[in-house]
Amino acid sequence: MSTPVGTPRLEAASERANRRRGLLLALPSYVYLIVLFAIPLVFVGVYSFASRSRTGKPELADWNLDAVAKLLDSTVLQIAWRSTWLALLNTVLCLLVAYPFAYYIATRRERVRNMLLLLVMIPFWTNFLVRTYAWRVLLDSDGLVTRLGEGLGLWGSMLFSAPAVFLGLLYGFLPFMVLPLYAAIERVDWSLVEAARDLYASGWKAFRRVTLPLTRPGIIAGSILVFIPSLGAYVTPDILGGAKTTLLGNYIVGQFLAARNWPVGSAVSMAILIVMLIATTVYFRSGGRTF
């Protein structure tokens, strides 16, 4: 910060005022984050080491590592593995569907583009639970999707099966992938692609060597936005999958509600959080910091 010769004190004062104003503007966010995120998170952490009363009340006494030890239980590990695999698969599916779609949107005229974006976001105006139940109507034995499949001779009723869960997750999280991809593709400097073509790169090669690397930040942002909530998904597997397999989200809900075992529920929640935190930190440290 260069200080003009004549008025150093005025300058310093204005800078202080600026900083104060900045703090004031950020204050609501700080309060929000501390009260609604940081403090509850501390609670969750603390409860991981607490104990359960005979009636299931969490008690901040008899501190122990039982709940943490349960993380290594083979059932919990299997559930974690299954959830991770499902979240990964959903992320890849979303990416495969969303990329061409986002590419299409980003290369339209502005008015068409805005309308398409609006269409992507409109479903958010309805509650996720309601939309998931709507899929149930589409997928049940005389649902539209089922009849279409039967007409084509390709599929029958998928309701309460794994494909229904994937369809529901893909549908639910697609916008989280489309929007960041769109933002990244829209910013691509197309003259670079043209230059590649001028240098005799094939269309595919130009895409792979130029467009894809340029849109990498969008791919990463979208993947994180899809992967993390997919990992905790529990409404979709319950409603569309018939609750036949337990995922991490269902397991945590079961611990908090049915078993009233807050320590275990907290420990599993904390473990997921810590693993995700480490994974993203490692990623950004290792040079993935591109956006």
Partner: peptide, 9 residues
């Protein structure tokens, strides 16, 4: 609850 989880696993 663990038993129900085991059934669904």
């Amino acid at each position: 609850q663990d038993a129900l989880t085991a059934i669904k696993n």
